[in-house]
Design a protein around this nucleic acid. Structure first.
Lengths: 116, 116
DNA sequence: ACGGAGGTACGATCAATCTCGTACCTCAGG
DNA sequence: CCTGAGGTACGAGATTGATCGTACCTCCGT
């Protein structure tokens, strides 16, 4: 079962849950952005510049985390999110490729995502 | 734009729309079932034995059709649905493989699906 | 011509979920 | 010790989506 922070391990990842997580435009955008950046990239939730409130942001990142798509680790005063690329690739080979190939990132998304 | 029956062509298929279509358990089950059968298989909506009413069934098949996942053609007195396998494979390579690999079809699903 | 099976269209209902505000927590920096 | 930034938890509102019943259509078989 998932760990204390709600991360499922590779075997526990469920495709339907992942599809549901990705079917929201904002969450899709987060994953597509992360997938287009170097593997070890870590970002705070805020750094994506999502046009929603803090609590809504927490909600979306929880869904991504519980689907197994991102890992969130405590970094002192904040919390960084990183794509679980290897895990996803092992469990759902090719999925991330489809995500990046079909991403329609809004203008400036790369800038926002690259900002610290 | 889509034809009169609402079928998008290959270029018009949208990944987000497809993900949304697949994120419902019943619709996923339909696609997974079709994907596991020979390519030219045609089925009536009823033959899947979905545990919902007629109108709900129509609703789900409309979403699958408008996402571009199935093609529905008039067959006289009824209407048959078939998977747009080649189109999907061309537009989203590998997606159908993921769907079949992660399908958890209920017991007897193959029988229901194979029945005419 | 009639009945029934397969489908669609429409409107209503109910559940899921996206959204937000507020309150609260923790840590880094002054 | 404060303050502010980043996050979470919880409850409420709003929106989406699944579900159904009814009415209606078309075709096949009798």
């Amino acid at each position: 079962m998932p760990d204390a922070e709600g991360h499922p391990n590779v075997e526990e990842m469920d495709f339907q849950t992942v599809l549901k997580a990705l079917s929201d435009p904002l969450r899709y955008q987060v994953i597509a952005t992360l997938a287009g950046l170097p593997d070890s990239t870590e970002r705070t939730c805020t750094s994506f510049g999502l046009p929603v409130s803090k609590s809504t942001r927490t909600h979306h990142f929880r869904i991504l985390r519980e689907a197994g798509l991102v890992r969130q680790v405590d970094r002192g005063n904040s919390r960084s999110a990183q794509l679980r690329r290897a895990d996803i690739e092992r469990r759902f080979p090719g999925l991330l490729g489809l995500v990046t190939d079909n991403a329609q990132l809004p203008e400036g998304a790369e800038l926002l995502a690259t900002r610290d």
